[in-house]
Design a protein around this nucleic acid. Structure first.
Lengths: 342, 342
DNA sequence: GTGAAAGCGCTAACAC
DNA sequence: GTGTTAGCGCTTTCAC
């Protein structure tokens, strides 16, 4: 004969001969229960595999213990594709470690913005992590208007209930471009994504700061999709010019891979005739010929920091945690000359 | 003077001079409300931007309107990396279209299995979509035991409350290998992922079916991680053999990219000396030199089908929808000889 | 067609 | 220490 499974906290209470309140105290590790009673109740909870109903708990508490994460996951050339899975994984891990679930929203398309705001208003999520936002993102404005606790990742903008986490894209690109110039290059090109995406704007900033510091006259920036094919094509185009570049800084390894391939086809020696760098430090970068200088972003730290800041804002309605700027690391490899010259 | 925002359904009811029940009927498009009353209440709801509290609704209804999706998102060589974002995006889109949210779980590691079961038992999710499962997955057993409505993606296993969606990995690889044999190749190699992952087992099946049908004696399968670097290395190793292969079937474009690169280094002509194929039909495949024959999986359809089957099982506790097998498509390109021989 | 009332299962303030 | 009580905000019978 099988034990009828107790359905709710009152059933457990009845079994233990106590009241529901006492069981609640035990389940939430609250004080005010005698150690024997506590042990007894704990045993019953385990025995009957009782978990409670989170909807009821959340209704009572007025919160959802759930974070919304907004990711434009559609495969798109615009988007910094390789970083998403890892970032998402790290956010999820960090949330879980703090007892939060992650609710996923996959686009910021105009018609979906209201769905995200709605999720907050209906108390489905307590706050938002919003990566890769651009300054003209409609969702940002709404989030500010509604006072939704929000942490931006990769876009630096603050307001009362909004802060950000980012890494030093600009400094990394500055360091790379400066090293290229230091090794004698004068005709630099940046193959960049669209600058309305903050991460790309920052890379542009770093690139131009390096070019201007060195009073370079031949630097240029080209905006394109961050794909293998666009790198391939851009490299082809550039080398039909009368004075082709001698250094190409790419905002993605995928684009750099296209450049490498086209250079191979065209017989252009790397790094002798032209230096090339990538971004994202993918598996490709460490195994291409030549190996590709690239930039490693601190993705797991970024995710963890975003969760930590957000929980901070959720727990304390008046908190306004300072933004976090983490270090991106340049991984120097053979596609650029050694730092500091030939 | 700003209007004090009505906090709950009773406030709206008071404003409309009706009872909460009536407002509830309007919000859920239920019959039994006069059209004038309905219009009036609808107007107030819009005016005050009232949404209701989903925790309360869920408590009352006993469900969460939320689907759990389990994705091992940690960057890993074992995992079919490029398909995840798109699959996840399509699941999310389909769920949203049916009024469901998506709750994300990022690992099936032993210690996390209970967390996922827990989420169901606490009514945080109504069911599970579980992609890329392998047959020895501990979560599958738990899910069956607990009777959690579940749809497997990429692993074919059924039980009372569990069904699956998959595509024809095996047939695609069979077609490719058969075409290679048809164009005169006799020494085929499959570079495959670990066979405990069902998708890789199926590719193995298709490969060996083709090899056996043709009574090939020189076919072999090598298990490795599905990365660029493992393709690079495997290709190098294979061509130190006395009788190197004349056709390499890869279970991922990333691996095929490594093979292509190594062949280029070694001066092996493709497809003349050896044919090569990939899987996933990434951007690389359509732009490499030579362009890469690859397999395009119906990812968006897969996600949509998974959601549809799952909602079916959630709505009807006795439903046991038939599994869905979708077609994977071989995209023939220059890295293999034309279908049917030279 | 609409209102009243009884839950859904939990938490927390207040008694004792 | 522990029980009692009053919600949390919604849905849904059951009257009228």
């Amino acid at each position: 004969m099988t034990i009828k499974k107790p359905a709710n906290i009152r059933d457990i209470a009845a079994l233990a001969g106590v009241s529901a309140g006492t069981v609640s105290r035990v389940m939430n590790d609250k004080p005010g229960v005698g150690s024997e009673t506590r042990a007894h109740i704990a045993r019953l909870i385990t025995e009957y595999d009782f978990r409670g109903d989170s909807n009821a708990r959340q209704l009572s508490l007025g919160r959802s213990d759930s974070l919304g994460v907004v990711f434009p996951l559609q495969v798109s050339e615009v988007v910094m594709h390789p970083v998403y899975p890892e970032l998402l994984g790290s956010i999820s891990d960090a949330a879980l470690a703090s007892g939060y679930d992650v609710s996923l929203f996959t686009t910021t398309a105009e018609e979906r913005v209201e769905h995200i705001v709605d999720a907050f208003k209906r108390k489905r999520v307590d706050g938002l992590i919003l990566p890769a936002a651009s300054s003209d993102d409609a969702l940002i404005q709404r989030v500010v208007d509604e006072g939704i606790p929000t942490v931006l990742v990769g876009h630096r903008q603050e307001s009362a209930r909004m802060t950000w986490v980012d890494c030093t894209h600009d400094q990394a690109i500055f360091d790379i471009a400066t090293a290229m110039i230091g090794s004698g290059r004068t005709r630099l090109v940046l193959l960049n994504g669209p600058k309305r995406v903050s991460a790309y704007q920052l890379r542009s900033d770093g690139f131009w700061r390096a070019a201007n510091d060195a009073r370079l006259v031949d630097a240029q920036e080209i905006e394109l999709g961050m794909s293998y094919s666009s790198g391939l094509q851009a490299a082809g185009d550039l080398f039909t010019l009368p004075r082709p570049p001698d250094a190409i800084v790419c905002s993605a390894d995928s684009t750099a891979a296209g450049v490498l391939e086209e250079f191979k086809r065209a017989g252009i020696a790397i790094p002798m005739t032209a230096e090339v760098s990538g971004f994202d430090d993918t598996d490709f970068a460490s195994h291409s010929t030549p190996q590709l200088t690239s930039v490693r972003m601190p993705l797991r730290e970024t995710g963890a920091a975003a969760v930590s800041l957000l929980l901070n804002m959720i727990d304390d309605r008046t908190a306004h945690p300072a933004p976090r700027l983490l270090d991106a690391e340049v991984v120097w490899r053979a596609s650029t000359s050694p730092v500091g010259g030939v």
